[in-house]
Design a protein around this nucleic acid. Structure first.
Length: 184
DNA sequence: AGTTGGATGGTCT
DNA sequence: GACCATCCAACTG
């Protein structure tokens, strides 16, 4: 995951103040901020600041602990819906996802959006509503506490060295499902 | 194993 | 009209 701040954060969608797209970032914590990038991917954020102060956490990757078949089906459905080239025939696209390792099902912000069937209409949804289909649940009390690590955020070089180097990316140490990031 | 470039459209200048 | 909080196939070596 990655933390994004308000107008002072040159890497944040809120860097130019409030706009129609980033309105959810200024809302109260616990809501979803969903945006589309590169015309074909949806990314999920969790709004985490007080109302009026923009902040959000981008979910860059998820390590599947349950629901693997459902995630794989969602990936297939999304792959068929947004087929990218004539070379990627439906059969070929489906086959690729079928053979995808579990750790790669949601290893990247666009893949998280695909694996959880995130839509633009999920923007602003209350993730704390335990009756909702898209929700945050409490970490099981009995579960072991995960060890975390941190480093620079991915894909935000445009923000300049000061902000690009800030270690606002956090991950579970040793997780096999970490996002790879853009090639360049 | 690492790099490059195409796909694709909303958003903001 | 340019720019992306990306992904993956097809290259090179």
């Amino acid at each position: 995951m990655e933390a994004y701040g308000g107008p002072e954060d040159r890497a944040s969608h809120a860097r130019s103040g409030r706009t129609p797209r980033n309105a959810a970032m200024f809302a109260s914590s616990g809501l979803a901020y969903v945006y589309g990038v590169y015309g074909m991917h949806t990314c999920l954020n969790v709004v985490c600041g007080p109302e009026g102060r923009a902040s959000a956490i981008l979910v860059r990757a998820v390590e599947p602990l349950a629901g693997v078949p459902a995630m794989r089906e969602a990936r297939i459905a999304r792959a068929l819906a947004t087929r990218r080239s004539d070379r990627a025939t439906p059969a070929r696209a489906t086959n690729r996802v079928v053979n995808l390792p579990v750790a790669r099902l949601a290893s990247g912000p666009g893949n998280v959006g695909a694996a959880f069937s995130i839509e633009q209409e999920d923007d602003g949804r209350d993730l704390l509503d335990q009756a909702g289909t898209l929700r945050l649940e409490a970490w099981p009390p009995a579960a072991a506490r995960a060890e975390t690590a941190s480093g620079p955020r991915i894909g935000i070089g445009f923000a300049g060295p000061a902000w690009a180097s800030r270690p606002w990316r956090f991950w579970i140490a040793g997780s096999p499902a970490l996002s790879v990031g853009p090639a360049r």
